[in-house]
Design a protein around this nucleic acid. Structure first.
Length: 469
RNA sequence: GGUCCCAUCGUCUAGUGGCCCAGGACGUCGGCCUCUCACGCCGAAAACACGGGUUCGACUCCCGUUGGGAUCACCA
């Protein structure tokens, strides 16, 4: 009988939820849900100068948009100092931690010196067994690491990783102002919360031996570790702002669906055979740490865009309508109080769905359906609205005004008769009409467009086009 | 610099010693479909970093080289 799985996502609120953090959260969520375990959110805000409530809200907001619901939390480390004090005393009492009176300046100086001399820049442990009276200043507390032997991590993703204990040093767990540092509070929290699996970025791999020894010193059982490879930008450097949008919110505002981002992030570093498109339920069902790769992955916006277009194509029109509505307003296509007929909107959306890769694209191209007037592209106008085409436009205008009901069928019949009368193919007529009605040379099928625009506006636009020649 | 990690098409990846002169997907390029644009369909180019081993046989195992990344704080 194995223990219940308990995992956590532990971001520090010093920025928005970014792509890398979102993937870590996702993998924790998938692992927990797959194993019917518990997913915990813990806010690591021990660095008070850089943490803000605004960022906490942003992280919560991003996670909820992505649909990554947590079962416990959010816990905040700044609320938990009692827990840390308890664990700290345990370490001091058992002699696993000691007071260090070296000042920050002294430490810095020694580091600099070591660096220029080419040595290693670790703490030399001089305060371990202080005999002379300590200086009159508030001390820090350091954790005592072993100096011989080696520490081996059996990482669920990276495999066996070993560190020579000689290369490790006694690190500070409590600052001189009485606050605690990361490598201590993580362990205290993970123990206290009964975390069974730590799934995090592999930038933490080097911290792991420290934490393993801390678990031992605290008399706790070390959890399993799984270190996820990093996500990089196109130039193979760590993904950052200069690679473009990196926050989850940014992708939402760019008109991506959460499903697309989830799917994309899941496939970045993880795979299941040849499958590319996964619903969330499928991800939960198929996710396994065994299928997580070891190497860093380059973030590829083009593939994300493709996935988004796939999800937009698959989205039903009613849902897509409600998703696009805020973008119609933010893009200035429709007024803030816009509330169109649902059926009509749904129909409009469905004609554009296969032509849009983002909700913004969709909203923008709906302009000629929604607005009263259109702007005509100059080139298109020159090419298709002229003396040669005026007769077709006139015929269509005349035909349309005599048509009682607009349907795909009646419109097709009308165009057929005009084609016969002028002895031309549909393209000759459709293209000028398309430009007159939409202002562009590209649009959905011309019958659909006419039907959606409606008789009144269609006639008006045709007339205007004819008069402009 | 020390320590640690990583290495299959441009990118994400499949591949767990013979099924691989390496498969899928995005992107790119051709073609078909067609009222335009898309969608869809068909096709093409495109990779096992290098060098040594081990083995009857290496993309797969071992060692080294090279290259990339991470980390070395009274940040997390």
């Amino acid at each position: 009988m194995s223990r219940e799985v308990r995992v956590r996502f532990a971001p520090s609120p010093t920025g928005y939820l970014h792509i890398g953090g979102a993937r870590t959260a996702l993998f924790n969520y998938l692992f927990a849900t797959h194993n019917k375990g518990v997913f915990i959110l813990r806010i690591e805000d021990t660095d008070r100068s850089r943490s803000t409530d605004e960022f906490i809200d942003a992280i919560l907001d991003g996670m909820s948009w992505l649909g990554l619901a947590f079962d416990e939390g959010p816990y905040r480390q700044t609320d938990r100092s009692e827990v840390y004090k308890k664990y700290l005393n345990k370490l001091i009492d058992s002699g696993k931690a000691y007071y260090c009176y070296c000042s920050a300046e002294e430490l810095e100086e020694r580091r600099k010196k070591a660096l220029t001399e080419g040595g290693s820049i670790k703490y030399d442990g001089r305060c371990r067994n202080l005999t002379s009276p300590p200086p009159d200043r508030p001390p820090t507390v350091r954790f005592e690491m072993p100096r011989t032997g080696e520490t081996v991590i059996n990482d669920l993703i990276k495999g066996s990783v070993s560190f020579d204990n000689e290369t490790l040093d006694d690190f500070i767990i409590m600052r001189s102002d009485g606050t605690f540092t990361y490598n201590f509070v993580v362990v205290a929290d993970d123990m206290d919360m009964g975390i069974t699996h730590i799934i995090r970025g592999d930038d933490h791999l080097n911290n792991t031996p420290k934490q393993i020894h801390m678990y031992k010193a605290l008399g706790g059982e070390s959890p399993e570790f799984a270190h996820l490879p990093m996500i990089m930008g196109s130039d193979k450097s760590r993904l950052s702002k200069r690679h473009g949008a990196t926050s989850v919110q940014a992708y939402r505002d760019l008109g991506y669906l959460p499903e697309s981002l989830i799917n994309y992030l899941a496939r970045l570093g993880w795979s299941s055979g040849d499958q590319e498109v996964f619903s969330k339920d499928e991800l939960i069902e198929k996710f396994s740490l065994q299928n997580v790769g070891k190497s860093a992955a380059v973030f590829n916006p083009e593939k994300l865009l493709w996935l988004n277009s796939e999800y937009i194509k698959d989205c039903n029109s009613d849902k897509l309508s409600s998703l696009v509505l805020p973008f119609l307003k933010s893009e200035g296509v429709a007024p803030p109080d816009y509330s169109p007929d649902k059926e009509w909107l749904s129909k409009s959306v469905s004609t554009l769905r296969e032509r849009s890769k983002t909700l913004i694209e969709l909203a923008d191209s709906m302009s000629y359906y929604i607005k009263e007037e259109i702007e005509m592209d100059e080139k298109a106008k020159k090419k298709f609205i002229n003396e040669k085409t005026v007769r077709y436009l006139t015929d269509v205008h005349e035909g349309l005004s005599g048509l009682a009901e607009f349907s795909e069928k009646s419109l097709e019949e009308l165009f057929l008769s005009i084609m016969e009368k002028n002895d031309v193919k549909l393209g000759k007529i459709a293209q000028p009409v398309r430009v007159a009605l939409t202002g562009n040379t590209a649009s959905p099928g011309i019958f659909e467009v006419i039907e959606i625009i409606g008789k009144e506006r269609a006639l008006k636009r045709l007339k205007k086009a004819i008069e402009s020649i």
